[in-house]
């Protein structure tokens, strides 16, 4: 075997464990889901094997699913926007700080050490009728009766921001760290104010990080299930809740498969569009 052939094979040999895992743990199960999506659920809960397009027709034509999908995308979009607005100043502060950045980044990661469910539930103790927020307002005499703050779309977005903000900050931080500080100094020395320097130098150069953080927050937010269950009201369901209901409550695996595939297709399309225009490099940096 020639050296060239051997060298050409080496990456594939090294990649083979990862590729095998992806094949067995992602591609094969996904194929099962595709097959399931063409089956039907019988009245007893058993599956009727065959090739039926009923579930696809139902999901693609019924406005109920379309509306919940749009609501899901809207919640994910608002969450991403809030994360960007809150995350940029924090990332800028860490990147330009002369203090110990490692400690600040560690503090940023600290919430990940606590279960996501517990972090989400903690809002009940903060915003609940007898929670900290209402107790403080009552004790200082601003209100007489507790405010009903929980179980609406705002609290769902709040819970998602709480969960996703670190992803946004880390991506923007990585992008800001890559910017040569001399460029900002040069802009200032050429007469630009600090605000102009930020708007015309720093912000454009950090946009790839902002976009990568945005993509992560959007995709994770749109696929969330537990936040609307814990913090949402009757009308705040998201698409993943429909998947759960179809598969677990209604035991309708074929319908659940169709819903899963629709969500994967929508989010996958967004990732593909992102990749087409911005590439995945910045995203990988942020995740690393």
């Amino acid at each position: 075997m020639s050296i060239e052939t051997r060298e050409a094979r080496q990456p594939w040999i090294l990649l083979s464990p990862a590729l095998t895992s992806i094949l067995l743990l992602l591609i094969v199960p996904l194929m099962f889901i595709v097959v399931y999506s063409f089956w039907l659920r019988t009245a007893t809960g058993a599956d009727q094997v065959g090739f039926y397009l009923d579930n696809w027709a139902e999901v693609l034509t019924d406005e109920f699913y379309r509306d919940i999908l749009l609501q899901t995308l809207w919640i994910a979009l608002v969450t991403t926007g809030v994360c960007a607005l809150m995350g940029y100043p924090a990332a800028y502060f860490i990147a330009r700080s002369k203090g110990n950045k490692a400690i600040m980044l560690l503090l940023l990661m600290l919430p990940f050490w606590i279960s996501y469910i517990i972090r989400t539930m903690s809002w009940i103790n903060i915003l609940g009728v007898s929670g900290a927020f209402n107790s403080v307002l009552i004790s200082i005499g601003i209100i007489d009766e507790p405010l009903q703050l929980l179980y609406n779309q705002v609290t769902v977005i709040l819970g998602l921001v709480h969960f996703l903000l670190p992803f946004m900050i880390l991506n923007i931080y990585v992008s800001l760290e890559d910017i040569d500080i001399n460029l900002e100094d040069a802009a200032c020395s050429l007469g630009a104010s600090r605000w102009q320097t930020f708007l015309e130098v720093t912000l454009p150069l950090s946009l790839p990080g902002l976009a990568a953080g945005g993509l992560l927050c959007f995709v994770l937010g749109a696929g969330t299930y537990i936040t609307p269950v814990i913090l949402g009201g009757p009308r705040d369901a998201m698409f993943a809740n429909l998947v759960f209901e179809a598969i677990i409550t209604q035991l309708d695996w074929p319908l659940g498969s169709v819903l899963s595939l629709v969500l994967i297709a929508v989010l996958g399309s967004i990732v593909l569009v992102y990749n087409r225009f911005l590439g995945m490099r910045q995203l990988m940096k942020g995740l690393a």
Binding site: R41, A43, G45, F64, I68, P234, R235, A237, L242, E245, T249, Q250, D252
Partner: peptide, 14 residues
């Protein structure tokens, strides 16, 4: 079960 669980799921969501 099949009809009602689905119908309720919709009512539940508005």
């Amino acid at each position: 079960e099949q009809d009602w669980s689905k119908k309720f799921g919709r009512i539940q969501k508005g």
